[in-house]
Design a binder for these strands. Structure first.
Length: 542
RNA sequence: GCGCCCGUAGCUCAGCGGAUUAGAGUAUUGGCCUCCGAAGCCAAGGGUCGUGGGUUCGAAUCCCGCCGGGCGCGCCA
């Protein structure tokens, strides 16, 4: 069933096509900044002014005349009005605005979810931390972003797989093993025998305590990796993030995928030998320099398993893949895509998609805490969760556009933990629950409330905000921008608090009371649905 | 130096498929609990949207230069 907005939009589109045959104008309804400009506005007349060579206001006049009958018949809105330079302002009828309440109560947890026009199998790869240390704040941002993104895409009708990839065989793992071994022998970071590029964190010493045979490097490696993987799993669990697939880099070698990728690249004719190494002409695909595939010592660069890994994503049937990574990996974007293109196996040129996030800067005591595994001192996801709670960390980390630098002021988060934005949204949810509890009626009965009693400006504004929820989710999914959900929830909660302070819900008049309760219940449902997407709880009491 | 990203209120950030008078939180100031939860609400002050050009009837939004910041620029991962 189309929404009132869809109805008006369709009628206006038809009108515009009749006024300007052949022109491919798309009528988009936008929310005006100022309420006096109506609930929606269209600038279609201004867009057509140039091609038609006529004044925008005259065109608007014609469009309104051409659609008057349909508009009246639809009952969706008041008669259209011209304003300003030639805008068509649209004022929805009261019933058009409030009907969303019933829709929400009917849909329940499904409100906002929609079937995709073209459902896809989508993979979101995120965190992908190597098992060389605990998860730090940057991983936390990735976990919050990636998990919310995955949930968002699921809500829009796609089949989403959450995947964690890690390097379990490279030089960093070797450094890890050597670091633990050194610790078992009582060598500390900075001392003469400490391994070059060793990991200095105290957690290395914790692992070393468990090692019985300091000479068995292989056993040390296995133990350290297992130990750290378990730690990371515990962190992720505490953060409420679950993965469907853990993909090991070593499996790419074991299954011959790396060799296959190299053969494929050579067969493509895009490689050449130089200085004893094998190079790929990635510059043919927009890279700023060609890349080495096989080093002169015979080993492969990390670029090869990277390509092989993405080939498996394609072969596993993921039409769309989103890699969530820090911006420090942005040079890999062009390179990986180039490698996939060179193989010539039908992978689209924009594959995979990337969501790159700036790294998180942690401030503590007025100074920046450097995030460095080597230095050993950094804030972990676990630290943050202990300080401000899981909900606050998740909400906070997903509340900013991915590509802006994020300053996480630990002192502020600690000192003002109760003023964290997440509580504002959760509080709105708890407030509705509290009102419903005092009313003590059957929420299912609210679907029958007469919504004609919702007339105040705040009530209609709230209803309009609720109606935006599905559209907002759709946009956020397309834009890969989960922060939009957090901003929406903040706005919805704000309007609810304002309403709650302005009007009493549990009034004597039963019909009015039920209408208001229905609106509140719809707000509660929408808040709960939005918070669920972000992995944040919606408490009934706080 | 080259490439990508960013520069909006004191601070943290939205808006950036152009459009009618620039937004929110926070901080500051002043109000609101005999009343459904004051973790709340109402109000005030605070911005030449980094800067200079360009396109346009119209630019925070699109294009170019410059300044400032981040990241990358390995036969490391």
């Amino acid at each position: 069933m189309p929404t009132p907005k869809d109805t008006v939009q369709a009628i206006l589109s038809g009108g515009a096509r009749r006024i300007a045959p052949g022109s491919a104008v798309e009528v988009l309804l936008e929310r005006p900044r100022h309420p006096e400009h109506g609930d929606y506005a269209s600038n279609v007349a201004l867009q057509l002014a140039k091609t038609l060579g006529r004044k925008p206001r005259d065109i608007a006049e014609d469009i309104i005349a051409a659609t008057r009958g349909e508009i009246d018949q639809s009952g969706a809105c008041e008669p259209l009005q011209i304003a300003g330079a030639g805008f068509i302002n649209i004022r929805l009828k009261q019933a058009s605005k409030t009907q969303i309440v019933r829709r929400i109560l009917d849909a329940g947890a499904a409100f906002g979810r929609q079937a995709a026009d073209k459902p896809q199998r989508i993979q979101v790869e995120f965190v992908s931390a190597n098992p060389t240390g605990p998860l730090h704040v940057g991983h936390g941002r990735q976990a919050a972003l990636g998990d919310a993104l995955a949930a968002l895409l699921e809500s829009q009708g796609h089949a989403v797989t959450r995947e964690f990839y890690y390097n379990d065989a490279g030089a960093q793992i070797q450094n890890l093993a050597l670091s633990v071994q050194a610790r078992t022998r009582g060598i500390k970071p900075g001392e003469p025998d400490w391994p070059e590029d060793g990991y200095a964190g105290e957690y290395i010493a914790d692992i070393a305590k468990e090692i019985v045979d300091a000479n068995d490097l292989d056993a040390i490696r296995r133990y350290a990796v297992t130990f750290l993987r378990k730690e990371q799993d515990a962190d992720l669990q505490a953060f409420g993030v679950k993965f469907d697939v853990y993909f090991l880099e070593s499996s790419l070698y074991a299954d011959g995928k790396v060799e296959a990728a190299v053969r494929g690249l050579i067969a493509s004719g895009k490689t050449y030998e130089k200085d004893g190494a094998l190079w790929l002409r990635t510059t043919d695909y927009g890279d700023d320099k060609d890349r080495v595939v096989r080093k002169s010592d015979g080993g492969y660069t990390y670029f090869v398993p990277d390509v092989a890994y993405h080939v498996t994503k394609w072969q596993r049937g993921f039409a769309k893949v989103i890699d969530v990574q820090g911006t420090d990996h942005h040079s890999a974007v062009t390179r990986v895509r180039a490698g996939l293109q060179a193989l010539g196996i039908g992978i689209p040129s924009g594959y995979p998609d990337y969501v790159l996030h700036s790294l998180v800067k942690v401030m503590r005591g007025g100074a920046e805490v450097k995030i460095s595994k080597r230095a050993g001192a950094y804030v972990t996801v676990r630290d943050l969760i202990e300080w401000v709670g899981r909900d606050a960390v998740r909400f906070f980390l997903v509340s900013r556009k991915a590509d802006t630098e994020f300053v996480f002021d630990v002192d502020l988060a600690l000192a003002k933990s109760e003023e964290n934005p997440v509580y504002y949204v959760q509080y709105a949810h708890a407030r509705v629950c509290s009102v419903l509890a005092q009313w003590a009626g059957d929420p299912a009965s609210l679907g029958a409330a007469d919504l004609a009693f919702l007339k105040s400006a705040k009530e209609l504004q709230l209803a309009q905000r609720l109606a935006e929820f599905p559209e907002m989710l759709g946009n956020a999914a397309v834009e890969l921008a989960p922060h939009a959900v957090a901003f929406y929830l903040r706005a919805l909660a704000g309007e609810f608090h304002s309403y709650y302070n302005a009007e009493r819900i549990l009034v004597e008049d039963v019909a009015l009371r039920d209408a208001r309760l229905a609106l509140c219940a719809a707000v509660r449902q929408t808040l709960a649905n939005g918070l669920a997407l972000l992995g944040v709880s919606a408490p009934e009491k706080m």
